[in-house]
């Protein structure tokens, strides 16, 4: 049995650990808030989650854990169009830092980042349709 530690300041609330855990032991619940629930001990002899974490927020060790579970909560920023929460603040910050400012679709700069993928597809279809529809 090894203990799992999560650095709250480093975690950006992405899906890497949850998606990579072969046992499905890390759970994510999305509502207005993203809840990530980690087990504080893990019987598996692997370090896949530790390696998968892009922020190196997870560490495995032998110290005794304080709680049976670790829960991290992230506010999900709502999509400008459908208002459903879809991205955590640290993830958005990371994207804004990596994507050059001039990569804009219209005159609103990187505002497209604030739309959820589903609404982005709908908007792209609207843009394409504008060339065919006379309205």
């Amino acid at each position: 049995m090894r203990s799992l530690f999560v650095d709250e300041k480093r975690c950006i609330g992405c899906l890497a650990c949850k998606e990579s855990c072969p046992e499905g032991k890390i759970h994510i619940k999305d509502d207005d808030v993203r809840e990530i629930i980690f087990p504080s001990t893990c019987g598996n002899d692997c370090a896949i989650c530790e390696e998968a974490c892009p922020e190196k927020a997870i560490s495995l060790g032998d110290e005794k854990p304080r709680e049976p579970e670790i829960t991290l909560r992230f506010h999900l920023i709502p999509c400008e169009d459908c208002l459903r929460g879809f991205i955590t603040e640290p993830m958005l910050e990371r994207l804004e830092a990596r994507i050059p400012r001039d990569l804009q679709i219209d005159s609103n700069g990187l505002s497209w980042l604030r739309f959820c993928p589903r609404c982005r597809r709908a908007l792209e279809r609207e843009r394409m349709a504008a060339s065919l529809l006379w309205e």
Binding site: C14, L15, A16, K18, E19, S20, E51, A52, C53, P54, F86, I87, M91, L92, R94, L95, R98, I99, L113, P117, R120
Partner: peptide, 10 residues
């Protein structure tokens, strides 16, 4: 690693 950043960056 399935982090999902790419799908939010598209």
């Amino acid at each position: 690693n399935g982090c999902g950043l790419c799908l939010l960056a598209c």
